[in-house]
Write a protein that binds this DNA or RNA. Structure first.
Length: 426
DNA sequence: TCTGGGGTCCTAGGACCC
DNA sequence: TCTGGGGTCCTAGGACCC
């Protein structure tokens, strides 16, 4: 493994939106600005975003909603079902604002981005961070935290610290050991549940201790990623800034059911719907799939019923993005793994081995078949974009679906009025 | 009653070949 | 009777991220 030891010059900022989904809801609802607010995952299942006030009350990240219902009631917490069309749109605006500072930017997730600040002078870095923060707040209304340091992993640490700062900006310079001593091992980027367990078992419970562990031990006990994290804590950059937007390599669509499902017919409906959505997604990216995976499972939390989970992967003879072909394969697969007598909680599909349309393998019949189907698919995508997703669907997908998601607390805010967003009908 | 969804990367081990 | 070993490729599953 080779490391680029140019840490002295490298400066990278991590900009992270504070309580992003909550902040998005607040944009259109100023009366909840100083109130405890949470946003729930699909199906109103878990808490996935919390305002500072909600955190203080003791509502934990990822906690099932039914477990905190009482706490929520007692403290008058405002609840929202998630509205991804809204969050996606606000995210695009935040990223666009960031790009006004630099082209060297890696959009890491819906609410986070790394920006290269190597060209900014040592004494100006912190003010530059403040300027970024100020502009995003002014242009989009979203509060952020900015962490800056020599490597991505360290800028993540800096960002954590910035979240507790008044200014919202932290620049971790060379002498960072004091900060690392107070930084818990499980908060390090790249150290998840399993690694935390391993490290703590070996007496390594802070970032500082991990930084000073021997190379040979890390390599022996973990893998290359573990080793990279350690190097990055030492200020040696091993994880590059990915400024090129790359196309996805797989595409999955899955949902939990609002109500448990037992019949093959209902499973067919949901698998068909997921398949249509996934196919549309990859067509949008001008991609085709050469494999499809179908999976179904019962609830892993239900102790009173038998658990069943199964999946099947099917290779496709010709790479395709044709909805009808994909649905047909998906249903074939579903029939093979379906077992009667179970209460299913979730179903999903994965399209994988994705290719660019242009690099499709050579096939004699393909051009003729494709022209026809492509015209049809384009017509469907156009209509659905204009009149709402599923305006055109296929009969198999069902119409009044009892298995559809719960979304009791949706703010129903739709930014289409100023950005021509397609409205998603749930 | 009620526990999300969408990604990436790494590795061990099997299949296959000579 | 004695029953190799090294290389490559692929895949499933695990770990991690937000």
């Amino acid at each position: 493994m080779s490391y680029t030891n140019n840490s002295k010059k490298n400066k990278v900022a991590l900009i992270d939106c504070n309580s992003f989904y909550v902040s998005c809801e607040r944009l259109f609802n100023p009366k909840i600005n100083d109130k405890p607010v949470v946003v729930l995952s699909n199906n109103d299942g878990c808490v996935i975003s919390r305002s500072t006030e909600a955190k203080k009350i003791g509502i934990k990240m990822g906690e099932p909603y039914f477990k905190v219902k009482e706490l929520v009631k007692r403290n008058n917490v405002y609840i929202f079902s998630s509205n991804y069309a809204l969050y996606g749109d606000i995210s695009r605006r935040v990223m666009k604002t960031l790009k006004s500072f630099s082209d060297k930017i890696e959009i890491y997730s819906i609410d986070e981005a790394f920006v290269d600040l190597s060209h900014i002078g040592e004494n100006e870095v912190e003010n530059y961070g403040k300027e970024i923060r100020k502009r995003i707040l002014k242009w989009t209304g979203i509060p952020t935290s900015v962490g800056i340091s020599n490597t991505k992993t360290l800028s993540k640490v800096a960002n954590h610290i910035a979240k507790k700062n008044k200014t919202g900006v932290t620049y971790l310079k060379e002498n960072i050991d004091e900060s690392l001593k107070n930084f818990h091992i499980s908060d390090i980027w790249g150290v998840g549940k399993q690694l935390s367990k391993l490290y703590i078992k070996n007496g390594i419970d802070t970032a500082y201790k991990l930084k000073n562990i021997s190379n040979s031990w890390v390599k022996k006990s973990t893998n290359v990623l573990g080793a990279k994290t350690v190097m990055e804590l030492r200020g040696v950059s091993c994880i590059n800034l990915e400024t090129q937007e790359t196309k996805r390599k797989s595409c999955c669509v899955s949902r939990s059911f609002g109500k448990k499902v037992t019949s093959l017919e209902k499973l067919k409906e949901s698998i068909t719907t997921h398949c249509l959505n996934a196919a549309e997604k990859i067509r949008n990216d001008n991609q085709t799939a050469r494999a499809i995976t179908i999976y179904i499972r019962t609830s892993p939390f239900d102790k009173n019923r038998k658990y069943y989970s199964n999946s099947i992967s099917i290779d496709l003879p010709i790479s395709t993005s044709n909805s009808l072909e994909l649905v047909k394969k998906a249903i074939d697969g579903l029939k093979k793994i379906y077992k009667c007598g179970y209460f299913y909680q979730k179903a999903g599909i994965v399209l994988s081995k994705l290719n660019e349309n242009s690099e499709k393998e050579f096939n004699l019949l393909a051009p003729i078949m494709e022209n026809k189907s492509q015209t049809l698919m384009k017509a469907i995508d156009f209509t659905n974009a204009k009149y709402g997703r599923n305006a055109i669907s296929i009969a198999q997908a069902g119409i009044n679906n009892t298995w559809k998601m719960r979304k009791k607390y949706s703010s129903k805010i739709d930014t289409a009025s100023f950005d021509f967003l397609p409205k998603i009908q749930i």
